[in-house]
Design a protein around this nucleic acid. Structure first.
Lengths: 317, 317
DNA sequence: TCAAAAGTGTTATCCTTACACCCATGT
DNA sequence: ACATGGGTGTAAGGATAACACTTTTGA
């Protein structure tokens, strides 16, 4: 590293840069992610110099692939740690990752590309029917063992605390946003195939959850975490919905993303209170039970609300 | 762009990558940012391949430079738009930017490096004594002119709306987090030197606020925006405070960052309620008025609270 | 005594949470 | 009738915002 203060023009050091996309959708009540290589990797490729910008290039590429406009794109993170290389060669790569939201629909992924339920990769993150049965035995108890196995007492305490917070043990509530922290804990403990590949441990039995190439699973976790956080303060769920939808469909989408169940009456009020939707006048009829009103996203909110929500007790005047 | 699904190994396309740091501190009741080249640029330099990771490399560099531990580092954004090159050569550079927080103290910036009040670059962002006098004439009225000058009606409406929201006109409240949006509006309207340099407009009189090289001012705005947002939901202010401090000092630091005044009694209650600080038993004596208790940050909160704060109405059980 | 800052009390309001309940449709 | 989902009412509790006020020091 040389952040030289007096640097004239930066020297033209060169690195391989690639782009990685976490493309999310919701269908059939499940959260989906676009994958390639038969589910083993996220879509990615070299960053070419003639793009207008990273974001617009990514958008164009996705729209070409899926035939659908990408509703929303945001940069996720840029990874550059050495231990990313992973696969033999110590080649250093910089990965710039993006999160994109789309309505799945015609998921005409060419070749071996396709949409997968993202809980295939993180089965412990789906708590819509309560904590999964395997969690305690296959994960938590082994992490407890790992925490106890640290060298000194301080480290043991620290690990135990991270474990409790990440997985919502001992009075800590489960926090669905901590998906990356949970993955990293499991990784550090050597319980995922990716960690084993990197030679950090000898070969323990892998835990439930499908691995991915390189660090794509970490990137996916980063994307899910961002989305789980964002749905709480920005109206991004709507990017994943069809043009019109019932409030229950909307709720199911939120639940799919969060991996948690939501309180129906209060959810409806929340949506209505914030004026996020408007009535279309029509009702959905093909469903069981009483027909539900169909709503559409009130796109005006995107402009109206810069949102943000104060948290500082300001003085008036 | 070629996010080829079937990509075997990405081709070794090469780009120049550099790191840019937004280092923030608070002293003398003012927010500071570390600059080089006599205040014209942010510290930056080429990214070298032998670093362990971006973050740790940046941390090491800063600690060497300032002699102080960097309390907090986070990645800001990776810029790669073509129009960044700006300065003659169409050379494409990728800039990975970071936000770092430190206690200024011995700001022994070597050479022409040093701490600057960040409102030198964004004078309209400091509203601690109300909206600055020049705002209406030097900025808002000219932006209104720019909004009216758009080609078609739709674009005029869109510009007027962005203007109203960004600058808190027509019933919209001022939102201190929108600093980047405000800067981009001013940039698009051709009112900053940086835009003129890029040849977007002929030469209008520049508005108050010091320009920077390349797009460093945009990066700085990104950093300030992140920090202004983050102090509301994470205890990061404390990274900028001395080991012990009074509640008024803490309040002044928050005000300096936000560019807004805070309601004292309610601020104190907020801090205490959340158990963010603990009493040291000592009091500050050298100040005017009644001596204030000195507090210290309760570092335990970093571990205890994964924080997050639900916004979804979950079902119990 | 006054200025300056520390610090406390109290209220109105809003938002969130939880619980209870009724409504409309198809089988 | 009953299952399924749609939809409303309301009350308790907590957080926030606003106002008014007392306390402690140094000059």
């Amino acid at each position: 590293m040389a952040l030289n203060e007096a640097a004239s023009k930066p020297i033209a050091v060169c690195s391989a840069v690639d782009l990685v996309a976490v493309l999310a959708a919701v269908t059939g009540g499940q959260p989906r992610v676009m994958t390639i290589r038969d589910g083993a990797a996220l879509p990615s490729g070299p960053f070419e110099l003639d793009d207008r910008s990273l974001q617009s290039g990514l958008r164009a590429w996705v729209e070409r692939q899926t035939g659908h406009p990408l509703g929303y794109v945001e940069q996720l993170y840029t990874f550059a740690d050495r231990d990313r290389a992973a696969e033999g060669s110590a080649r250093r790569v910089i990965s710039i990752s993006y999160l994109g939201l789309t309505r799945e629909e015609s998921a005409k992924g060419a070749g071996n590309a396709g949409w997968r339920n993202w809980y295939d990769y993180f089965p412990w993150e789906d708590r819509r029917s309560g904590p999964p049965a395997f969690l305690e035995k296959a994960i938590v108890s082994r992490l407890r063992g790992w925490a106890k196995a640290a060298d000194d007492a301080a480290k043991r305490r620290e690990r135990a605390e991270r474990l409790a917070i990440s997985f919502g043990l001992d009075d800590s509530p489960w926090n669905e946003e901590l998906i990356l922290q949970r993955y990293e804990l499991i990784y550090e403990a050597g319980l995922v195939e990716e960690a084993v590949r990197n030679g950090d441990r000898d070969t323990p039995a892998a835990i439930p959850g499908r691995p991915m190439l390189a660090d794509h699973r970490r990137i996916l976790a980063t994307g899910i975490a961002r989305l789980r956080a964002k749905i709480k303060y920005r109206p991004v769920v709507f990017e994943l919905m069809p043009p019109t939808f019932t409030l229950l469909q909307l709720q199911r989408a939120v639940e799919a993303l969060a991996g948690l169940l939501v309180h129906k009456p209060n959810f409806r009020r929340l949506i209505e209170q914030h004026d996020l939707v408007e009535d279309t006048g029509t009702t959905a009829s093909d469903t069981p039970g009483r027909p539900a009103k169909l709503y559409r996203f009130r796109r005006a909110v995107l402009a109206e609300r810069a949102v943000a929500g104060t948290k500082l007790p300001l003085t008036r005047s």
